[in-house]
Nucleic acid binder design. Structure first.
Length: 432
DNA sequence: TCTGGGGTCCTAGGACCC
DNA sequence: TCTGGGGTCCTAGGACCC
């Protein structure tokens, strides 16, 4: 059994804890650059404001609706999120924070009335934090997400679902026929793992409700779509395919990307931005005790400005060895940037991704040719001694190609005579 | 005029190896 | 003229999530 607890309208609810005067008004929280609505109060949702809708469009569409827009305060949200997680963890033995406002709880071995227990925790979050949340319970994570959706919708839109499912909903407690009836009235786009693209394809195949998708044959789904969707179907059928991740695994990539406050055209400005992004990303990298093997840099123009010439390019630069050193990474990132920069474009965004991450305890030993402290003379002498003892080519630069391979550029000497006097192998033999 | 940021996983195709 | 089979690794792109 799994539980999924999720704050209602997270960022807006958090802002309201500290500014109760926001209650009752349509409130939205904006993305960076104050661009898009990333959280909406119920009043804002009722006005038809969509997730991700640009605020300037909202203002144009609803000039007199009294929409209050706040810039995002991620420091505050992060801290409130931690408090939320620690309270909800009390629901069961294992917990997996899934996003800033959501947490899965493994309920293995928990006895008693789970719905009652859910209400207890929900009320505790309300009382201790002042934030409303809902809890979904089910045998798989995908069904728990769905149960959470039903709990929320039943609370927000009375009549949409049975009233006793509001706030806390346990799908496992329902008789199979009731469950089917419930899923038949739920649109398939509500399923975790079905996005707009796959959703459209399913609709075109004549499927519309969660029940329709649940009744598909997994093998057919795999053939026609993918293993990903197959897993989703199996999870809907009650077969757990997605396990709880009880310990947070280290990131496999770390990004820092930003849209610019205003249009950028000069290389100099992009260089500054990229240097800054590397600094932030490398700091995150060091925080997880990691090192990066590659750095990716990208720049692009604004796809929204249809009249602008468009340009979008990225480059991945390998680092000579894994590192978390800001200046080393920045040097390589800037090399990459200069290689992809083109004059005459109005750039809107740039970013840096650190890739090929590994733990900093993993160290590849190497002969450090670039270490200024190394005695290069000694190294070169050793090379000469080795080549002298074992023959020319025993030690050489890898960039010169391997001596054993066919090197097209090496000189042709098909008719050369042996090195009679300098090579033991070529020593002439005198016979009587 | 103004349109976010940070992730994960899977797949297909190319390069390469024996 | 005739040109295999099995495998790995890497990358780009697609799709999804919040």
């Amino acid at each position: 059994m799994y539980a999924l607890a999720d704050m209602n309208n997270a960022y807006v609810s958090i802002e309201r804890v500290f500014r109760p005067s926001l209650e009752g008004h349509p409130v939205v929280v904006l993305s960076n650059n104050d661009g898009c609505c990333v959280a909406r109060s119920n009043e804002a949702k009722d006005l038809g404001i969509a997730m991700g809708e640009p605020i300037f469009q909202v203002r144009r569409r609803l000039p007199n609706a009294g929409v209050i827009a706040l810039s995002a305060n991620f420091t505050l949200y992060g801290d409130m999120s931690n408090r939320f997680m620690s309270i909800v963890s009390g629901l069961g033995p294992d917990a997996e924070p899934y996003s800033i406002d959501e947490i899965f709880v493994g309920m293995a071995g928990v006895r008693g009335d789970l719905v009652q227990r859910g209400h207890l925790v929900r009320d505790r979050v309300q009382q201790w934090l002042g934030i409303p949340c809902c809890i979904g319970l089910a045998p798989t994570k995908t069904l728990a997400k769905l149960a959470n959706h039903i709990a929320k919708t039943a609370e927000r839109k009375p009549g949409s679902y049975p009233a006793d499912l509001a706030r806390v909903c346990n799908l496992a407690a329902l008789p199979a026929s009731d469950l089917d009836a419930l899923l038949a009235t739920t649109g398939l786009q509500e399923v975790w793992g079905i996005g707009p693209r796959i959703g459209k394809q399913l609709q075109e195949a004549g499927l519309h409700s969660v029940l329709d998708v649940m009744q598909l044959d997994p093998a057919t789904v795999r053939r026609r779509w993918s293993v990903v969707l197959e897993r989703t179907v199996r999870e809907l059928q009650g077969q757990p395919c997605i396990a709880l991740e009880d310990s947070p695994s280290p990131k496999k990539e770390i990004a820092c990307t930003r849209s610019f406050g205003q249009v950028v055209t000069e290389l100099k400005d992009l260089e500054e931005a990229v240097s800054e992004f590397v600094g932030r990303a490398a700091e995150k990298l060091r925080k997880q005790d990691g090192q990066a093997g590659q750095v990716l840099v990208f720049i692009h123009t604004s796809p929204f400005r249809k009249d602008d010439k468009q340009y979008s390019r990225s480059v991945t630069v390998p680092l000579r060895r894994p590192t978390a050193d800001t200046s080393v990474i920045a040097t390589m990132a800037l090399h990459g940037l200069r290689a992809i920069y083109r004059e005459g474009f109005r750039y809107a965004k740039a970013g840096v991704l650190l890739l090929d991450l590994q733990d900093s305890s993993v160290q590849q030993g190497e002969l450090d040719l670039d270490d200024p402290g190394a005695d290069r003379g000694k190294l070169m002498r050793a090379v000469d001694v080795l080549n002298g003892r074992f023959g020319r080519g025993a030690v050489q630069l890898a960039s010169a190609g391997l001596a054993g391979d066919a090197r097209l550029w090496s000189m042709r000497q098909e008719h050369k005579t042996p090195n009679y006097t300098t090579s033991w192998a070529d020593l002439p033999i005198a016979r009587a």
